[in-house]
């Protein structure tokens, strides 16, 4: 029975406490690039979630087989295979989404959330927790993307999910759809997350950069520690 509780926690932790985007600051590129609308944000989130669950499961299955020295190339290969499969499915069954995501769809391969979870979690845990961890992280990622997409689409285009809103629609603030708006909204959301975390005295996990090969040269990890 003691196994039961942590198992469900593997799923929920990714959504708020260790939200990959707002708390661990991973996967920033797609977060900024595809959140000009809720539709593309949701599509990107779903695609990344599928890849996360599949790659986490397979890597967890193979964790005893893959030799230590070539593990990163192996992970990348597995991830790239799943990303390409998802890309083909999107092309076949949701061509407009493929157009909206463009090159960011194949770039899920280098999304550090996926490689990060493979290295930090899936390579050390059995299949079921790994799949749940992937699902939780994916849902957390999607939630953050949809939140960003909502703010940017409502303010910048005066619509939500393509539907024109009555009040905001008359004078949209275009800059929210453009790159500067992306950076700004992301900064504000992170400030809000910081504020909530300090207020509830919740333990903020260290930056998820631990798995990132950039850890040594990167100031982001140190900065995160300083401010919390």
């Amino acid at each position: 029975m003691s196994e039961q509780k942590p198992l469900y926690r593997e799923f929920t932790k990714g959504i708020i406490k260790e939200n990959p985007v707002l708390c661990l600051v991973l996967g920033t590129c797609p977060t900024l690039a595809v959140t000009t609308g809720v539709k593309s944000a949701l599509g990107m989130g779903a695609a990344a979630t599928i890849v996360l669950v599949c790659s986490n499961s397979v890597i967890s299955l193979l964790r005893r087989v893959i030799p230590e020295r070539v593990r990163i190339p192996c992970y990348i290969t597995v991830i790239a295979a799943f990303v390409t499969v998802v890309q083909m499915l999107v092309k076949a069954y949701a061509p407009s989404l493929d157009k909206a995501l463009g090159v960011y769809l194949p770039l899920i391969v280098v999304n550090c959330i996926i490689l990060g979870r493979a290295e930090m979690f899936a390579s050390k845990h059995p299949v079921l927790p790994s799949a749940l961890d992937g699902l939780g992280m994916g849902v957390g990622f999607t939630a953050a993307l949809v939140l960003m997409g909502t703010i940017r689409e409502v303010l910048g285009a005066g619509s939500w999910f393509g539907l024109r809103l009555p009040l905001a629609g008359s004078h949209p603030i275009l800059i929210f759809l453009m790159p500067p708006g992306g950076f700004f909204v992301f900064g504000m959301l992170m400030a809000a997350a910081n504020r909530l975390n300090t207020r509830s005295r919740r333990h903020t996990p260290e930056s998820g950069c631990a798995a990132c090969p950039m850890n040594e040269a990167c100031a982001k990890a140190h900065e995160k520690k300083e401010c919390t």
Binding site: V25, I175, M178, P179, P180, G181, G182, F183, F184, F186, G187, M188, M190, A191, A192, N194, R195, T198, K220, E223, K224, E226, C227
Partner: peptide
């Protein structure tokens, strides 16, 4: 301000730099 320290203010600064490239 406390909650903007670190990455949030960096992102706001990046937003202004991006403005110049528009």
């Amino acid at each position: 301000p406390q909650s903007l320290k670190g990455l949030p203010i960096t992102l706001v600064a990046a937003s202004l730099v991006a403005c110049s490239f528009l």
